[in-house]
């Protein structure tokens, strides 16, 4: 299952924190900080999987090859879009490559809701950000992976607010996604 979904920007400022277990606020912040340290040092060519941050690493070493699964979070997957890092922490029951696609769906859904989404949209509409995530993941289990249904689900909850006009949006239009159009086509 998925243990946490985090979004923070290039400076490590959180934009979305969702922990599917109850965790002390200070511990949450420490974890974000540790992951940010790990993620911000990654080179361009590096893969999208992080080694476990110290807070999580201590307890996962006991996992043995004899038990293929357990409840311990063992996988930290991330993707970096423009100014934001999207991170998913999960156990071994999730497929690493599929999680990458899941993040892609999430971002595409946000893009569908905000039209050429950027970090500012998410700052000012963090409720919508949460709502979008809630359409995809409930209690750490993925409930929807189809883009249109996610968007539909969020829209059903009410009008999605746009970014305030005077915040301006200039010099954008970096159209097109890096990877394939179909959600599942690439990987």
């Amino acid at each position: 299952m998925i243990n946490a979904v985090l979004v923070f920007n290039n400076n490590g400022q959180p934009r979305l924190t969702k922990f599917y277990t109850q965790l002390e606020t200070s511990v949450q912040q420490r974890l974000i900080s540790e992951i940010f340290t790990l993620v911000s040092n990654r080179p361009n060519s590096a893969c999208n999987f992080l080694p476990l941050p110290p807070l999580l690493a201590s307890s996962s070493k006991s996992s043995t090859p004899t038990t293929p699964h357990n409840d311990t979070p063992s996988l930290v997957t991330y993707r970096h879009y423009a100014t934001l890092y999207f991170i998913i922490i999960s156990t071994s029951t999730e497929s690493p490559l599929a999680l990458l696609d899941l993040i892609q769906v999430f971002v595409q859904a946000l893009d569908g809701l905000f039209e050429n989404v950027c970090e500012l949209d998410l700052i000012f509409n963090f409720e919508t950000l949460h709502a979008t995530l809630a359409e995809m993941i409930v209690g750490g289990v993925v409930v929807e992976t189809q883009l249109d249904r996610v968007v539909e689900g969020v829209k059903a909850q009410g009008k999605v607010a746009k970014r305030p006009v005077n915040e301006g949006k200039s010099g954008l239009g970096l159209g097109g996604f890096g990877r394939g159009e179909g959600v599942w086509a690439g990987r």
Binding site: Q13, P43, Y81, A82, T83, E119
Partner: peptide
């Protein structure tokens, strides 16, 4: 803290482009 970014235009960058930094490990 939820501090403002040094440069606002940064935050307006479209998320569509997946990005990766270039530092050596």
């Amino acid at each position: 803290g939820p501090y403002g970014e040094p440069d606002d235009s940064d935050a307006e960058e479209s998320l569509r482009q997946e990005k990766r930094s270039d530092q050596p490990p």
